[in-house]
Structures are given as structure tokens and as C-alpha cells.
Design a protein around this nucleic acid. Sequence first.
DNA 1: TTAAAAGATTATCAAAAGCTAATAAGCAAC
DNA 2: GTTGCTTATTAGCTTTTGATAATCTTTTAA
Lengths: 190, 190
Amino acid sequence: MDSSIIDYISQFVKLTDDEAEILSSQNLFRQYEKNEILLAEGKYAKVCYFIIKGCVRSYYIKDGEERNTDFFFENQTIRPVSYQTKQPSEYYLSCLEECIVAIGDEARNRKLVEQIPKLFSLVAKMNEELLLQKQLELDHFKNNNPEERYLNLLENKPEFLDRIPLYHLASYLGITQVSLSRIRSRILNR
Amino acid sequence: MDSSIIDYISQFVKLTDDEAEILSSQNLFRQYEKNEILLAEGKYAKVCYFIIKGCVRSYYIKDGEERNTDFFFENQTIRPVSYQTKQPSEYYLSCLEECIVAIGDEARNRKLVEQIPKLFSLVAKMNEELLLQKQLELDHFKNNNPEERYLNLLENKPEFLDRIPLYHLASYLGITQVSLSRIRSRILNR
DNA sequence: TTAAAAGATTATCAAAAGCTAATAAGCAAC
DNA sequence: GTTGCTTATTAGCTTTTGATAATCTTTTAA
């Protein structure tokens, strides 16, 4: 049994042995191939994900082109917008690498929170933190040009550069692949 | 007594008369002049705000220039990043107009949630919703050019155009004032 | 090992944004 | 009114990005 989830949650709240047992017995693991789709546009997200291993890419289609919005790695939770809104998803979730993922559907999640009430405030805390990060990310994006944003990525998320192809990073940075390539060469020749 | 807060909360959860009474008796109102600073960079945010009347601008300084991050109007809650993180604020909050604001410090807020427990899940719900909005806002910002972003503002937040000077909107749109002016004339002559 | 596919860079040209400065319009105070 | 201050537009020039196409490199699979 993989203990990633228990380890992850234990960073934030103390779990009793019973609670840890509940968690580890409840979780459902699945393996996905590279490029396999977890969630497609138009579908309803019935589940949340916790990545044990691998990398998941979130994107949507604008003018026929994929626009990447997020990349998720090990020990990250994916709670699709569609899971929250109960509306058809506007986003795709697709595996950038072969992935091992823990999956929780709504009934399972609700039952878990009933059995371990402290999970409720943990989720609230995590959402607060996520909200904060999104705010900072948006502010940064608005007030820095593409070159600054690329340098910021190099500095703060080097794993993105290691594991994600540049042509995917380009739309994540809000620019074209060609422009990103020019920025990189501009930085090199300086 | 102003009933904005009660009315606002009642949209989301049913309040008993007792609970409404607790809320309306607890709240502290303050009036601020135009251009008065609610929170300055480097200060600790000890309180949250709920705007009864007026408009508050959030900004920070980059390269000596003000960069606007948000504008808050009537019936909006401001929960400063610094209030959440307990770190000195990187943002300013300043009144764009004369304002009437309800203020709640941490002790008061905590006590309120104790007396009216359903407020806890309300706040959690609101944070979820805010997170969703920020995600959409960020995605939109990344994948639309300045002209599209301006048109989107016209379409979806016309009150911004009515109540906020263009030179403040420019940095909110991630461009210069001059560029915004060009975009506007480009749209007109078409 | 070789061919095909995927990923990255370079070149050219047009469109848009930044920078700076000048000008114009709107509005409040005297 | 007219003076000053704030807000908005316009102009000239430079830099950057977008669009498209061609080329080069790396990875994958036969």
C-alpha cells in the first residue's frame, strides 16, 4: 500500500492510527498511460485525484488550440472545476507521463469527512492556501512580461522545465512556442 | 442600522432572528474619505472588511509604480492576504471613493463563528467560489490579448468602466495607460 | 539502423505594446 | 474666468510578440 496520502495529510493534521487505517483502506488507485485522458471537455467530473506518481496536464481548447492551465505532480490534489460546479467540464485532464493516481468519488469523500471530521477544516485550509497562491500567480502574471515569467518559472518551478516540453510551457506562460524559443535564446546570448 | 451584511449572508444561509440579531449588534462600521488608506504595505492586516458603500482599490508597488490587483464594490468582502498569512502586507488597500465599511477583527470573527457555526461552512463555500473565479480569471488573462481583455471587462464588469479611472484599469489589465487608450480608439474606428 | 514523429529553433514580416513626451479635456478651487 | 491638477489621448520611435514556414534536433518505434 502506498502511504503518500497518509504522509501528505500528516503534514497538516495529526492522524490517529484508526484514522490512518480508514484512509489507507478506502483509497482506490489507478494507473494511466502517458497521454491517457482523465477528464474530457463536456464530461462531468465525478471524482477528485491525488497524484502518487507522474504528471497531469490541465488544458482547454481555444480557437482550436490547446491552452495549458496547470500541471500537477506527485503529492498534489486535483479537484476539477467541474467536480465543484457540477457542470460539464470545460477543461481536459491528460497524463503527461505514465501516472499512478488515487481517486475519490463524491460519496467516498463525503463518507471520509464524516468518519474523520478534521478533514473538513483541512480541506478548507487547503482551499484558502490555494486561493492565496492563485491570487499571487495572477498578480505576477499581470505585472511581469513573458521573459520575467519564464525566468520566474526557472527560479521557482525548475521541475516544470525538467518534465514538461517547452511547447506545452509556452501556452502556460501565455505566449507562443516560437516566442518562448526567442526568449530563451535572448537570455543565452547575454 | 444597515442591513447589507444580513441581507448578503441570507442569500446563502437561512439565519434565525437571534442569529441576525447577533450579527447586526456585533458589527462595527467606519467611514473613510476618498483616497484614505485602509491597509499599507508593511503593515499587518488585523481585520477583514465588508463594503457597505463605495469602492476600494487593492494594489502593490512594482518598480516604483502602483499595480492594481483588485477593485471591491458594495457587498463584497475583503479578506487581506496579510490577514490570512499573518505576514506584513505587500498590498495597499485604498478608497477610490468615500466608503462605508463594516470591520471585523480576528477575535470578533472567531466569536461570531462560535455563536453561528454555520458561518464556518459559509466561509468555506465562499472561498471555494473565490478560488474558482480566480482560476477562471487567470486562464482568461493568459489566453486573451489586451484588447480581448478590455472587451471582456466592458461586457462583464461595466461598473468598472463607470467608476474606475482608465489609468487605474490599465495596470489591472496588465498594460500601460497609453496602450489602453490606443486599444479604445482602435475599437472606436472600426 | 533507419524512418517517422515529436520537440525546438530560426527567419521574415506585420501587428501590437512599451517608453517618452506633448497635447487635450475635465474638473475643482480660488 | 483662470489657474492648477487630474485624467485621457496622440505622436514618434524602439522592442517584442504573433503568424507562418522552413530547418534542425531528439526521441520513438519499426
